[in-house]
Design a protein around this nucleic acid. Structure first.
Lengths: 347, 347
DNA sequence: CTGAAAGCGCTTACAG
DNA sequence: CTGAAAGCGCTTACAG
């Protein structure tokens, strides 16, 4: 099934068919309809490979991801793919499996495939991603990971804004002693802490104790709450670095007989636990870093650059969204009791 | 950077360069080295698009997925991609976003791209996936979802084997009254239940009560355990349809003062909660349906079919793996106490 | 408005 | 062993 077949049926030259199907050129309405009908009759689908070769553009984006099965990376990918598909671009996905060797190999494959643009999906705020932009003559955009080169375009969650948002929300609730439980050695975590601090300071308040630095587990959330209690640190709100920590903190607070949020408000981060829409009310309050949107924005920027637009240099921040649940909503005892049943918290 | 450039430098014809680079043909060692050197000097990468056109094969696999950001689908994708990459095949990913309209559109795109094979990643054991095999002249394989046509090749977790494995493991522990908590209206869940029953029957035992059918939440796990207790159903082991249910069941059992596994052994399914390797021992026992392996096997079969192999018809079952944790390991009190701390279970 | 021709960058019989 | 030629299925100036 080729242009030639359609041309034969319509009784015209291949070039005319091409013109019509690509939507351009001066062609009489009569021959146009004849051609369109023939194409439809044959269910003709132009060979994208041949088109790419002839036009010098593949209409393919290469996506280099460190681990597609990482849930956050998959969210970024989904956001990006949907933008690419809408721009009639195909998405070639290569998983580097976090191996430098594979990464190098995949770069060569992307080059051979003549991709029109490259999207790198990193590993969040782990170490910077060694820039690969100079290996390509097409635009490269980094998402959910920071390129090692400041000249590159890297889309990342606005962690500082997350921290600010947390602080504002908790202070808005009337909290006076906000504690912070998070993990160490992570740029994102540090930025969130800084954002939180900036809001507290501006309001003339200090953090309850020092930031408690552990790992990303629920267990650490619980342990940290235990520390706050043991040390008699006064606190009436906790901003947790992720939702797991928040769940652990929540459990430990309940164990200690504290009411949430009456005694202590709890706010997480990640929007990892997607509660069912059927639930009457969301339980855990959290901040969503909008990872799918991040992927979509990175993709949009890449597409724009491919059509002549300039790439904005440096970090591109994606704003977070507050997802309010019962853990930061003053509520009736009955409502709280129902919602906070130990089992509920597990979702 | 084309064949012509390499040929000019090496002082030979393009066709000779092509022969050498593709690794075949009788070429003198001397010219061969000359060509290889020239290619390396130019860092020549043959245009895959041109190769595809000339050879009539794209070396591209089209992957149609219902939702890439679904964690299970992402695992399947990862397994498949790694096989494709190893076979020097590129992976084109299209997300149908669970919309029939988009699905139809994407099929046309895959056709236009002249993919050499299609892998459909479904939504587990939800409704069958309407077969799209007759829309392609290249092999189509379904993974993590069953095609509506029995003539197609569909790779699915062997849920019956999961049930059997659960039964054998629990009976092996000496359990005499195995309960089953799972969700309704799901073929996979039904098969797991059937597998469990078959083992119990063969051992001359009956299920403790009827299968408890709810949803996939931890809350349901807890509620169901409450029902077992309230109804005075004797039970000393529970096989849960997924890990969330198992967590909820676990919490409720602890609340009731029951020892795990001394009084009640708990076994989950999914291997959803990946505990850190650094933990001395895994807490929750579970059964892993091996979704990445499923993706890899589906991919391997597809690749084989593309090179002339026959496609096996019907359901292809992927065997599960037992992941033993403390919830089914008879252990010392000290060990159990440490491991079963309420917080641990959240991990 | 339409056709003939050249070209995109490879591959692969076919000669020699 | 190596080169010249035709072809893969399109696109796009260039004529007319």
């Amino acid at each position: 099934m080729t242009l030639k077949d359609v041309a034969a049926i319509a009784g015209v030259d291949e070039s005319t068919v091409s013109r019509v199907l690509r939507g351009g050129g001066k062609v009489s309405d009569e021959t146009r309809t004849r051609i369109v009908e023939a194409a439809e009759r044959l269910d003709f689908r132009p060979n994208a490979l041949a088109q790419s070769l002839a036009r010098g553009e593949s209409k393919v984006i290469g996506v280099l991801v460190e681990d597609v099965s990482d849930i956050f990376s998959a969210l970024v990918l989904r956001g990006a793919e949907s933008v690419f598909a809408a721009s009639d671009l195909a998405t070639l996905v290569y998983d580097a499996q976090e191996s430098p060797g594979r990464r190098a190999e995949l770069i060569r494959k992307l080059q051979a495939r003549r991709v029109d643009g490259v999207l790198v999906i990193g590993r969040g705020s782990a170490a910077p991603y060694t820039s690969i932009s100079d290996r390509f003559q097409v635009p490269v955009v980094y998402a959910f990971g920071v390129s090692s080169s400041a000249l590159d375009t890297s889309f990342v969650p606005d962690d500082f804004a997350v921290g600010r948002m947390a602080g504002e929300h908790l202070l808005g609730l009337g909290s006076r002693h906000v504690a912070h439980i998070t993990a160490a050695e992570d740029t994102g975590a540090q930025n969130r802490a800084a954002g939180l601090m900036s809001v507290l300071e501006a309001a003339g308040r200090a953090l309850a104790g020092r930031p408690l630095l552990g790992d990303w587990s629920a267990r650490w959330g619980a342990t940290a709450v235990g520390q706050l209690i043991d040390q008699d640190t006064p606190f009436d709100a906790i901003f947790c670095g992720n939702d797991l920590i928040a769940l652990g903190a929540f459990a430990r607070l309940r164990e200690a007989g504290l009411r949430i949020p009456a005694d202590v408000a709890v706010l997480g981060h990640d929007h990892f636990v997607r509660e069912r829409p059927s639930e009457e009310s969301k339980v855990l309050s959290t901040i969503d870093p909008n990872r799918s949107e991040l992927g979509a924005r990175a993709a949009t920027t890449l597409v724009r650059a491919m059509t002549g637009g300039a790439l904005p240099q440096g970090l591109q921040m994606v704003a977070p969204t507050l997802v309010v649940g019962l853990t930061t909503t003053p509520n009736s005892d009955a409502q709280a009791r129902r919602a906070y049943d130990l089992l509920e918290m597990l979702l």
